[in-house]
Design a protein around this nucleic acid. Structure first.
Lengths: 147, 147
DNA sequence: GTATCTGCAAAAATTTTGCTAGTAT
DNA sequence: ATACTAGCAAAATTTTTGCAGATAC
């Protein structure tokens, strides 16, 4: 978890007013790795600021994402999720239960293109989702073959 | 574009009733590569079946995805999108305008893990998004450096 | 003091659901 | 004949917006 003053400084660096709500929201999201929906964040933050509104949470999450202070995720269906881990990393996405886990970038052989991208596209980074089954779902899948 | 009879056969293979609506929807989505939202598909299909409902489009797109007849996409924010390209491929995602283009899997050096995935996760495939700027947005970005 | 931000409430956008009549097998 | 599906309308969910008052710089 980042200290209040660190968050305030981070806001300043990005030209954002360091409001109380903003500091609390950012600290809540970065308290530990995970993938939070706006609702999740709202519920976390309400413990400390019962009067906060969901709209404020949305606005600030979008602000943080726009300033690169958080990452945006769209792993499966459903609501927006936000990821506090800024270092390059990839995701393990269970196609059965939808769970998403981070995995260090070093897990993969470096991703490289063999040639420039088509149509003048300028690649900045590669984001990899490893689709498959988490242990729990892999177990459920036909304990012995079907029949 | 797939012929009506091909689509009917495909439905049969997957144990789905080959209804008129289903055939029209599937043909519309697979008419050409692209990334369609349910609204898009609805508007395409309404030309041929003015009485069709958006709910029917949603139900059928989800059915197709569940049977592996389409792929589901969540490239950026916003609505569900669906991709008719079933062969392995990756995406170029413009982080400025949100445009998504397909790029052949062979564009990348093969993606491989250096070691088994953590926590018993079973990887089935890697999905790569190349994040960056499309030509149009790259041009807009500071034609000469700022100042 | 001025620009930015919050909270509220309302609206917009997206997706799901239950049900009846209709259709495919 | 039986099971599945379409259309409809309503609800649920997720996200955005406008604005008055409050706060940060």
């Amino acid at each position: 978890m980042q200290s209040q003053s660190k968050v305030r400084e981070l806001c300043r660096v990005h030209g954002l007013a360091a409001t109380h709500q903003r500091v609390i929201i950012y600290r809540a999201v970065t308290a530990r790795p995970g993938h939070y929906s706006p609702e999740d964040v709202y519920n976390l933050v309400r413990r400390q600021i019962p009067s906060i509104s969901l709209a404020t949470v949305y606005k600030n999450l979008k602000t943080f994402v726009a300033h690169g202070m958080l990452r945006e995720l769209h792993p499966g269906a459903g609501p927006l999720r936000v990821d506090p881990t800024l270092e390059r990393h990839h995701h393990l996405v269970c196609t059965r239960c939808g769970a998403v886990r981070d995995v260090a970038s070093s897990w993969l052989v470096p991703v490289r293109a063999r040639r420039p991208a088509p149509r003048g596209f300028r690649v900045r980074e590669f984001k990899v989702d490893a689709l498959g089954l988490c242990r729990k779902c892999a177990r459920k899948r036909s304990p012995r073959s079907r029949s």
